[in-house]
Structures are given as structure tokens and as C-alpha cells.
Design a protein around this nucleic acid. Structure first.
Lengths: 207, 207
DNA sequence: GATCCTATGTACCGAGCGGTAACATGTCAA
DNA sequence: TTGACATGTTACCGCTCGGTACATAGGATC
């Protein structure tokens, strides 16, 4: 899909320009889709920011929807990068790992350029739940839930399912509140305290 | 804005048709804006569902944005109708009032046609935080926060601010999770349990 | 230096967007 | 009956959308 096909005889040139173009387009799409909304941004705006031309986009991606799926894939990788970076700061301490993630999330979510969870925004912009982009959203959230469940078990919670669900709801709430409440509203930062309260109640063993 | 102006001399006719048209348009817009997204739906689709034509819309509303604000006003009233209906079922019992709201919210949020919080969806679709629709969103959420704070105080919470923030995050999380997690995922229903856990921790006085 | 192949760019497509001018119709008051 | 005005309808405006046909440019090969 994303690579140009060649004939059988001639050796293929490395198409270095094409690879550059692909990354340029992906980065431009990442910026614009997140900042302005994937549906609101046209392909013209993407190629303009990438310094390219529309045909250069459609030679790398078969449609805007295909580009959208690549955007979500990049965002998923970035999210897990954030998540595991928080976890890595407290090896073997699942409670602190979770709290660290909430602290880092709250920090990101209070940044002026923060526009909420890219997956949530996609779900809001695409009503059809069978749209491929919506499937990518559901996959990401299911994986997040599994990760939270694993950490809840590591924290020796007597109710890991309830703890994981509660934390998942707090995460989604933080995303949403960062966009719906007035800028700088303390409810976003309150997610850390609430997560601690939940951990105190549902994982009392670990200090 | 929504009413036609008349001259000074002649008595104004009741414009019964116009009032009908206005309600038809508002109901069509309510259905479509919520189901498909306000930005994704064109005015043509609205007037078509209303059984009218485009000029009938633009004589009642000066622009699509004006219609959008009316839509949000209707949704705000509906939301407070839901909220106070839950509260009214347990007079004088703030803890039960809050839990009832979470139960009712979870019920609504698991309905197949549920599309999340209309205000959150508007925030996702309109990136500019100074857009009038975004101001309406922020107003609604600020009012919700105040209402939660009042109930937290009524419940004699030693930390009403923290309790209200936590509940607000859970509410937003329920909205979002209903759309981002796969249909029927139990995380949505888990909001009730999590709210109870929060209340146990931050409003232990009331039974 | 001519040839060929491919990556790139220009210009365009039909469709839909929000919004409006102009005109036809209907209905009430004088 | 007639005039005045709110309403209904049609056609259209300029613009942007996602997507594409086709001409051009550039670099390796012979």
C-alpha cells in the first residue's frame, strides 16, 4: 500500500525522495489531525504543511482513510511510549507506576496545546462504529484496559477488575475534562488525588 | 435573532407556521447534530429531515452556528432534566442522589444509540476554544462542577472539592468510555461501583 | 548525446459545503 | 377587493472537499 510497485525487469531505485515524502506527510498529518481534527482537516492542508503536492500523498497512501489509520498507529505507539516511560520510573512498584502515569498525564493534559486523547477525538468525529478508525480506537482502549488490569493484579488488589475499570474511567475523564472544562481548571490535576484515593481503597496492601 | 422583526405600525401576525418550522428544525438538528456530529452534518440534511427547505431555516436562525447554540441550549436543559430527576428520587440523601445519577447515566450510556456527551463531542469537533459553542460547553461543565460540589457538601464530605472533582472525572470518563471502548464493555457500568468507592472514601458520614 | 523510465507537479473532476437573491404563494387587515 | 407582508420554493453563488488524468522534469543507461 504505502510503497510504490515496480516492474519485473529494471532494478528499483531507492526512491529516497518518496521515503522523505512519506515521513513529511505523516508528520504533517499528525500535527493537523490532532490539532484541528482529522475530519476537519483536508488533504490539501496536509500536503501544504508537508511542503508537497497532493499527488505525492496519494502515491504513498491510497486514501485519506489509509493515512488516518497510519496516524492512529503513530499515536498508539506514542501513547505506549508515555505509559511505559511512567512505569519504568518505579520498577516493581505498581502503585507508584500508576500514580506516576497519572502525574505525567495530568502534566501533559494541562499543556495549552493539549487537545485531549486522539482516539477519543476520532470516536467523536466518526459516528460509524464500524469505521476502521473506530476499530483502531477500540483496540487501543482494550489494550489499555488489559495493561491496567495487569498492574492492578501486580498491586495485589483484591478487586483488580474494579480497580482497573475505575482507573480507566479516570484516565478517560482526564482526557475529556482537559477539553470541556475551562482552561486551567483544577479538575484535571485532581485526577492524581482521585487515583490515589482509588488505590487506597482497592489496593491497600502496597504502600 | 430567532424572531423576525416587524415594522412599527402594523400588528404582527402570529406566524404560526414559522413557530412550527422553528421547532421542526430544532428537533431535526438535535437528532442529526447528536447522532452524526454537528460539523459533519450540513444544513441541507437538517432541513431535509425537518421536511422544509433551506430558506426556512435561515429565516429562523441567522447561521448554522446560531442553530448550533440553540442545539446546545436544548441539550443543556435535557441534561439538567436528567440530573435533577435522579436527585429527586432520594430527597435529602445526597449520597443516594449521586449514586442514582450514576446508575441512570450508566443506563443511558449503554443504550445502542448513545453517542456520548454532546458537549464533549462539540469540544472534539471544534478545536478553537474561543468558539461560542465551546463557551457553552465550558459553561455547562462549570455548572455541573458547582452542582457536584454542592452535593458533596450536603453529604458532609470532609473534602468536598476532591469528591466533586473525582465524581466529575468519573462522569466524563463514562461519557468517553461509552464511545471508545467496544460496545457493551463493562467499564461503563463500573462507573457506579467506582463512584460508590469514592463516596465511601470521601463522604463516609452518610450511610 | 539520445533514450527511456519514473518521480513529481499542474490542473482538473463531480460533489457537497454554508449562505443568498429572486420570485411565487398564501393569508390577513383595511 | 386590494394591498402588504410573512412564508415557501427554486436556482444559484463562491468555496472546499477527496480523488485523478495527464503533462513535465530529472537522472541513469546505452
Amino acid at each position: 500500500m504505502t510503497q510504490t510497485e515496480t516492474g519485473s525487469r529494471t532494478r528499483r531505485r531507492p526512491t529516497t525522495h518518496a521515503l522523505d515524502a512519506q515521513t513529511q506527510i505523516l508528520e504533517a498529518a499528525d500535527t493537523l489531525f490532532y490539532r484541528e481534527g482529522a475530519r476537519a482537516v483536508g488533504v490539501d492542508a496536509v500536503v501544504k504543511l508537508a511542503g508537497l503536492n497532493k499527488m505525492s500523498l496519494y502515491r504513498q497512501f491510497e486514501s485519506k482513510d489509509a493515512l488516518l489509520l497510519h496516524y492512529l498507529e503513530r499515536r498508539a505507539q506514542r501513547f505506549w511510549g508515555y505509559f511505559e516511560a511512567s512505569v519504568a520510573r518505579h520498577p516493581g512498584q505498581p502503585r507508584e507506576q500508576l500514580l506516576q502515569f497519572f502525574r505525567d498525564l495530568a502534566t501533559r493534559a494541562t499543556h495549552p496545546s493539549y487537545r485531549g486523547c486522539p482516539f477519543v477525538n476520532i470516536a467523536a468525529e466518526f459516528p460509524d462504529p464500524t469505521h476502521p478508525a473506530r476499530l483502531a480506537v477500540a483496540t487501543n482502549k482494550t489494550q489499555l484496559m488489559e495493561r491496567l488490569r495487569a498492574l492492578a493484579r501486580e498491586a495485589d488488589s483484591p478487586a483488580p477488575e474494579r480497580l482497573a475499570s475505575g482507573l480507566a474511567l479516570l484516565i478517560e475523564g482526564t482526557y475529556a475534562a482537559s477539553q470541556t472544562y475551562p482552561p486551567g481548571h483544577p479538575v484535571v490535576m485532581a485526577a492524581v488525588d482521585t487515583a490515589r484515593t482509588l488505590l487506597d481503597a482497592l489496593a491497600p496492601g502496597t504502600a
